[in-house]
Write a protein that binds this DNA or RNA. Sequence first.
DNA 1: CATCCGTGGGT
DNA 2: TACCCAAGGAT
Length: 372
Amino acid sequence: MNEILHNALKDFHIEDFQKSLVNWYEAEKRDLPWRRTNDPYKIWVSEVMLQQTRVDTVIPYYNRFLEKFPTLQDFAEAQEDEILKAWEGLGYYSRVRNLQSAVREVAEIYEGRVPENIDEFQALKGVGPYTAGAVMSIAFNKPEPAVDGNVMRVFSRIFSIEEDIAKPKTRKLFEELVKEVIDPENPSPFNQGIMELGALICTPQAPSCLLCPVREHCKGFHEGKETMLPIKQTKKKIKNKKWIAAIVMTDTGEFVIRKRPRTGLLASMWEYPNWERDEGDARNLETFRLSLKEELGMDIQTMEPLTTVKHVFSHVEWEMDAYVVKGLLHHKINSPYLQVQESQLAQYAFPVPFQKMWEAYKNTLVNSGKGS
DNA sequence: CATCCGTGGGT
DNA sequence: TACCCAAGGAT
């Protein structure tokens, strides 16, 4: 066993720790929708939604999702636009496409039953070490580690571990540590207990150590280092990208939208037509007119400034100058473009920056007395 | 291993 | 305002 592990476990009362944690979890756990089921499909859905996403954000999405796709088979048979719409606003959209790909594989290869073998399950798309361990332990009560940010923070403090939790290698260290201390009789409440502790007590800022059920086991607390842990390398600054975009309405009163490429940022989501813009280039607007004319075959009648939308993603920032364009379409437009009635817009999934743009458009209609 | 991939809330 | 953070995974 490696040095850090050996050191961490020295003088650590494993069984007392397990009991204190599991008892606290059973007494204090929140009543969350995915804790009311044993269906591995539903637990799987919850775990994917919860990746890098807060509980309060997930709850309404989870409920709506399972209302729409109650069974694994229902979700396997759904159309891409349907599943993206169900995920709209939740972010990290490849999660839902990977989830469907994985679910379809389960439907076809495993006769619709979620594999109980962790290696088979983790081989599915979108299922990494954390999700595999979480579903195996929570749905099937298997003693597998499920190391997320909570677990690394809580265990960094309990064992006073100063490894950088931003480094991939560190997650493996914590997996080994969990394997040593997990309660083999109660893997599900143990794993969920650590995460619940991280969410309710052992929080990133100002942990409530005086309320902590495992305080007496916490080396970081005893050393007065709990607020110094975990150690995490800071990430670098994000870049800025500038766009010019438009709400385009045709002479027939329809709106022009566009499907984004299958890969990359906001993959397969819908958007309003937009092109990259060069800062300080006076020809931006003229280039924009040309793009609309050439790509859409549109004669522009009016073009008025709408708003500027700023949106910060995980690694890039957008600044979109938005316009409202009205024009004549001479030909049928081609994929990836689509012209739809306003009443049909709601069935297409738009990422947040374009939702902001549409809201601004609706507001101008209301303010100018043209709204409904 | 570093970077890409969303969004909203907290300080 | 400018960060940080939240039940990560793919490439």
